[in-house]
Amino acid sequence: MSVIFEKPKALCDVDTHYCPGCTHGIVHRLVAEAIDELGVEGQTVGIASVGCSVMSYNYFACDMIQAPHGRAPAVATGVKRAHPECVVFTYQGDGDLAAIGTAETVHSATRGENITVIFINNAIYGMTGGQMAPTTLPGQVTQTTPYGRDVSYSGNPIRVCEMLSTLDGVALAQRVAADSVPHIKEARKAIVKAFKNQIEKKGFSIVEVLSTCPTNWGLSPVEAMQWLRDNMIPYYPLGVYKDIDDKQ
């Protein structure tokens, strides 16, 4: 018998606190698989952000730092500038990266900070119980948009990869999804590339992973995957928005 699939070493053998069907677990595993594939666990420092994934510091086997809300790219910058030999990644949700941490995101990107950013976009604030996020879709009902997000009142969602792709410091800006096996395989490739870019000193790489929040969306895990496909992918098209390798 040969092993086709098993727990990556860079993932700790502990139970996560995530709700059943939450795609955080999938993306955690993909990140750990990338770290394993590149053989860099011993030199990797992960930055946990504030949101559901805050306790990811207990789940990744590499060294971890928990950053204040939105500041993960700044904390990552500090680590990377102090230890250029380290592989530094942030793992951030949409509220963290695209609302409170917008300045840190944009400026670490435009500086071409040589870090890897894993961005979980599930269109909602999960940890606090399902409030409107910067990526909440028009019309989407959340705890703080009980009548649906009215963009004329609450403003429009932010398409992060499109925005960051305009910045010179960005090496890779790619949007993937965690809703199906083929998409998860795509996501894995993108995450590996985002880490590889850093090792090859190419600059800022971000992988946005469209994700689900079954609990706060009020759907079963399987229904949530379908909701992601039907609603999020049309608004946030998957694809590579910037890849400096394509220019060469």
Partner: peptide, 16 residues
Amino acid sequence: ESELAASNMLLGAAAS
């Protein structure tokens, strides 16, 4: 980009 960012860069560097 801000004092917030500067102090959090410090956090990262010092934590390392």
